[in-house]
Amino acid sequence: MNIFRFLGDISHLSAIIILLLKIWKSRSCAGISGKSQLLFAIVFTTRYLDLFTNFISFYNTSMKVVYVASSYATVWMIYSKFKATYDGNHDTFRVEFLIVPTAILSFLVNHDFTPLEILWTFSIYLESVAILPQLFMVSKTGEAETITSHYLFALGIYRTLYLFNWIWRYQFEEFFDLIAIVAGLVQTVLYCDFFYLYITKVLKGKKLSLPA
């Protein structure tokens, strides 16, 4: 494992923990898209089915278990525990526009036409766009809490770091997975606008707000 991959995983884990703590400590999921979190739960579930079929390392298994468990905990907090604070009126992105095309694409473009492989491919495609309901919510309300911005930055930079990891692996291990690379590029591009706002506003101590 190279440094980019490791930092990417740490950043991904930080994002998940930041979100869990934000909701738990404030007893509120205001400003958080339940739809994006639901999509991430689907992403982890469909990708990590290989927990039952394939052992890679203790690190790999424990991270997968933590990702899956925390995604379900987040969904539970939004749709059950702190349901009253969930701002469903602003969470109006139509997720079928993400799920249906990525599902179709995973049947058409995959490494292997087997159930587990198609589900893995679907999870890669879906992950690349799963943040859209959250970004849509931020653009709709025109603002995001600073802690939510930190969450989004950690989540966005994780896939960006994976891009460097893939360059590294291509160079030194002669390994590349085109499906993951293209989806990772799409995912990173979706965050570019947010990265700009994060650097120019949040890092300078201002709240993330969009011009009206």
Binding site: R5, D9, H12, D50, N54, I56, N60, M63, K64, Y67, H111, D112, E117, W120, Y162, N165, Y170, E174, F175, F176, D177, L178, I179, A180
Partner: peptide, 10 residues
Amino acid sequence: VVARSEHDEL
């Protein structure tokens, strides 16, 4: 170099 699908990443 060939594309592989080992899925050893997260």
